[in-house]
Simulated scan of single mutants.
Amino acid sequence: MSTTTFRVDGMTCGHCVRAVTEELSALPGVTGVDVELVTGGSSPVTVTSGAPLESTDIEAAVVEAGYAVTPTRSLL
């Protein structure tokens, strides 16, 4: 089992959460999606799957739902 957590920008309501959850749930091997809605900010999203997922697949699913994955920042 694998768990991936990332942040999504642009979600403001339950409909947004459902759209992202639906797209991520359609990825092969995904067994669960948990979204903590942060209106006006970056919402943490945790995806549980049978095997690690490709970050490009996650990002494509989020974009298909109409949102964007928050870029990670390097701390230098």
Rank of each mutant, 00 (worst) to 15 (best):
M1I: 07
S2Y: 12
S2C: 07
S2V: 07
S2M: 06
S2P: 08
T3G: 02
T4I: 09
T4Y: 01
T4D: 11
T5F: 00
T5E: 13
F6H: 06
R7W: 04
V8F: 02
V8T: 10
D9K: 11
D9W: 05
G10F: 03
G10A: 07
G10I: 08
M11T: 07
C13L: 02
C13T: 02
C13Q: 00
C13H: 05
G14M: 09
H15G: 15
C16I: 06
C16E: 06
C16F: 07
V17P: 03
R18A: 13
R18V: 03
A19I: 01
V20K: 02
T21E: 10
E22I: 00
E22V: 03
E22Y: 08
E23V: 01
E23Q: 15
E23M: 07
E23A: 14
S25M: 13
S25A: 14
S25H: 05
S25T: 13
A26L: 07
L27A: 05
L27W: 06
L27K: 05
G29C: 00
T31Y: 00
T31Q: 09
G32Q: 03
V33N: 05
V33M: 10
V33C: 08
D34G: 04
E36D: 14
E36S: 15
E36Q: 15
E36K: 14
L37E: 09
L37T: 12
L37V: 11
V38S: 11
V38W: 06
T39W: 04
T39K: 13
T39G: 09
G40P: 06
G40A: 08
G40S: 06
G41R: 04
G41Y: 02
G41Q: 04
S42F: 02
S42A: 15
S42E: 12
S43A: 08
P44D: 07
P44A: 11
P44G: 05
P44C: 11
V45I: 11
V45S: 05
V45D: 09
V45F: 08
V45H: 09
T46E: 08
V47D: 10
V47E: 11
V47T: 05
V47P: 03
V47Q: 04
T48K: 12
T48L: 03
T48M: 01
S49G: 08
S49H: 08
S49T: 12
G50W: 00
G50H: 10
A51R: 12
A51V: 03
A51F: 04
P52N: 05
L53S: 03
L53A: 02
S55V: 12
T56Y: 04
D57N: 06
D57H: 07
E59G: 04
E59R: 14
A60C: 09
A60M: 08
A60P: 07
V62G: 03
V62T: 12
V63A: 15
V63K: 15
E64V: 08
A65D: 05
G66I: 07
Y67G: 02
Y67Q: 08
Y67C: 12
A68G: 05
V69N: 00
T70D: 13
P71G: 11
P71A: 13
P71C: 11
T72K: 11
T72R: 14
T72E: 15
T72Q: 15
R73H: 13
S74G: 15
S74R: 14
S74L: 14
L76V: 14
L76W: 12
